[in-house]
Structure formats: C-alpha cells, structure tokens
C-alpha cells in the first residue's frame, strides 16, 4: 500500500441538507460552486478505494482523486448511514460495504437498465 488516499463526495441538495442541519454533519458540509450545493468529503484509504472499484466496476477515479460514478444506490445508502451513525468517515463507507453490499448491488443492477427521468 502506498498510503495514498482518495475521496468520496456526498452532495447535499436542499432536501438532504435539511436532514443534517443541527447535527455534527452540518459542520462537515462545505458550500460548493458559490453555495449552490453543499458537499461532505469523505477520505478513504487506497485499500477501500480499490475495494469500491472492484465491487462497482463502472466507478472510476477522476482527475481530482475523487471516486466517481458509484451507483446511486451506494450513495443513497451511504448518506442514510451517515445520518444514522452521525459520522462521515471511512467507517461509514466500510459499513455500507459490510452491511448493505448485496442490497446495493441488487439495486445497482436495476440502475443499469432504467433510471426514471426527472
């Protein structure tokens, strides 16, 4: 292991932001793009990054070192666990992998075929 770290960005739109308001997570929410959105950045080890890339083959690391194109189901579950656990760290990411991987993969497979348009 090189000790390199990567990031996962959990974007908070108005609805999600309401759910973290008044919790410790609110302090972690950084305004982005002139305050149009907020984002919580979670740093993960190379080991966890590799696991994510392996579990979700369409995900990729972008030029900023962020792991992108993770399934929507993964991001949604991660956000729910962040709220439930009150933390936004590698532990929350690993909790998704350990507790909810099958369910996330099942939903992700459906996402491959159809996502309802807005």
């Amino acid at each position: 292991m090189s000790g390199r770290t990567y990031k996962i960005g959990v974007v908070l739109d108005a609805r999600r932001y309401e759910r973290v308001r008044g919790t410790p997570l609110e302090q972690r929410a950084v305004p982005i793009f002139g305050g149009a959105l907020k984002m919580v950045e979670i740093e993960v080890s190379e080991e966890t990054a590799r696991r994510l890339l392996q579990e979700f083959p369409r995900s990729r690391i972008d030029a900023r070192g962020f792991i992108e194109e993770l399934p929507v189901a993964f991001k949604r579950r991660l956000f729910e666990l962040m709220v439930e656990l009150g933390r936004a760290d590698e532990g929350a990411v690993r909790a998704v992998l350990e507790r909810h991987l099958d369910e996330v993969k099942e939903q992700a497979a459906k996402e491959e075929e159809y996502i309802p348009p807005p």
């Binding site: 960005g9 974007v11 962020f66 992108e68 194109e69 993770l70 929507v72 991001k75 949604r76 996502i115």
Partner: peptide
C-alpha cells in the same frame, strides 16, 4: 464524472 454523478442522483 462529478457532473454525471449529480445528474444520475
């Protein structure tokens, strides 16, 4: 990639 992630969410 970041923008695609937003849109799909």
């Amino acid at each position: 990639s970041f923008i695609r992630g937003l849109i799909v969410e």
